[in-house]
Amino acid sequence: MSTNKICVVVVSGTLERLQMAAMVASVAAVSGQDVLVFLSMNALTYFVKGNTTKAPHEGEMGVLIASHKVPEFKTLFEQAVELGDAKIFPCSMAMDILGVEQDGLEKYLEKATGLTKFLHDATDGQIWTF
């Protein structure tokens, strides 16, 4: 069955995975696909307002990315929303653990969402996990 919906689950806090997730989400969104992104675990911390921590790299590629003019993953996620109508959902459980409220997250994120709701919304889409 073909589907036009792509669901991107991002849990990793490493540069390579965040970058790839952002590339998939942004390119799919601007190509007319419905894109839902779920941010949880270590990935969510980068979307807390004021967090300027650089994502650590896993290997050589991450080092090279950091030294080349590659669009930043947060910029790509924001462009996925602004240019392609992607929806990015912060995981409510991760927010509880971090002790962060909705207004403490980047403004282009949707309202906090639980895994049950996200999985329900994802039933008729592809799921990509990073």
Binding site: M23, V30, V70
Partner: peptide, 17 residues
């Protein structure tokens, strides 16, 4: 120029808008 994938595409989409 100088930007890597998907930078040029994103810049194009902004310009198309």
């Amino acid at each position: 120029r100088g930007s890597f994938c998907p930078g040029p595409l994103m810049e194009l989409i902004v310009a198309l808008k």
